[in-house]
């Protein structure tokens, strides 16, 4: 029994062994990109939106509103990052229903990579928002004595993110594999349905936690200079970042 798709080599290219994690990641990327291109290829104001475009708009706007709710302000760069996290993890987990598909999120390497991405994104967004000095001052708040604890907290966030996502996805796959040997015709279906639900919840939790971490590192809404021409539908920023 394989616990990680890293161990499955799909093919070799340029002298590198392409394992199932990377391969199915590319599949997920291809699916997302193709769908996006197909839906948005004929996107003009004079063309009325079809159901696919409306679906994507609903998804994107839901992600945007969720980020705005957490961060207290519309943040496009955060949308690109956290939205991609959610879509990637959710699509990977949803494609679990396809026979033969191994979700990349079941690999600790993938979840580690995503957690590292969040870990790197937090200071980047923080420095971009507050400046280098402003971001580093977070680590000595409320006193300098808290510096090591803040550093440990920062790293533990990434580790917990990685382990949480990996554990949930992999445990679902492992439990399905165990139950498959016990009751091959009934439990796998139930577990697959449960896996879909768990996958979506994990994608949501992962993206929300990433948004929270990044938002806590960036300047609060009150400190952010107001945009010159705010969008007409932008609600007033009444909430502080968590």
């Amino acid at each position: 029994m394989k616990l990680s798709p890293d161990q499955t080599v799909m093919f070799e290219a340029w002298g590198l062994a392409i394992n199932a994690t990377i391969f199915f990641t590319w599949v997920v990327m291809a699916v997302l990109t193709c769908v996006a291109i197909l839906v948005t290829r004929n996107l003009r104001p004079d063309v009325p939106p079809n159901r696919w475009r409306t679906t994507l708009e609903v998804i994107v706007q839901a992600i945007q509103s969720q980020i705005e709710e957490i961060a207290g302000r519309p943040e496009r760069h955060l949308l690109y990052f956290a939205g991609t996290l959610f879509l990637f993890v959710a699509t990977s987990n949803l494609l679990l229903v396809i026979p033969g598909f191994e979700p990349p999120t079941a690999s600790l390497s993938t979840t580690t990579a995503l957690a590292l991405s969040v870990l790197i994104a937090v200071p980047l967004f923080g420095i971009t928002s507050r400046g280098l000095g402003g971001y580093l001052r977070i680590y000595i708040k409320p006193t300098v004595l808290m510096l090591p604890f803040n550093i440990i907290s920062e790293f533990s966030r990434g580790i917990s993110l990685a382990i949480r996502l990996y554990g949930n996805i992999m445990s679902g796959a492992v439990i399905a594999a165990i139950l498959l040997s016990v009751a091959p015709f009934f439990f796998p279906v139930v577990m697959d349905v449960l896996g879909l639900l768990t996958g979506l919840i994990q994608a949501y939790i992962f993206a929300v936690l990433a948004t929270v971490y990044i938002s806590s590192a960036t300047a609060p809404a009150a400190e952010t200079p107001a945009p010159k021409t705010p969008a007409p539908d932008t609600p007033p920023n009444e909430k502080d970042s968590p």
């Binding site: 890293d6 990377i22 996006a36 879509l87 580690t112």
Partner: peptide, 26 residues
């Protein structure tokens, strides 16, 4: 176990996916 080559590749894949979705979706 963690395959660090895969981790690096996944980080790169994720960044590429961010760019692709930003370009073609968001």
């Amino acid at each position: 176990s963690i395959d660090w080559i895969t981790v690096v590749a996944q980080i790169a894949n994720f960044l590429v996916l961010v760019w692709l979705l930003r370009r073609f979706l968001y």
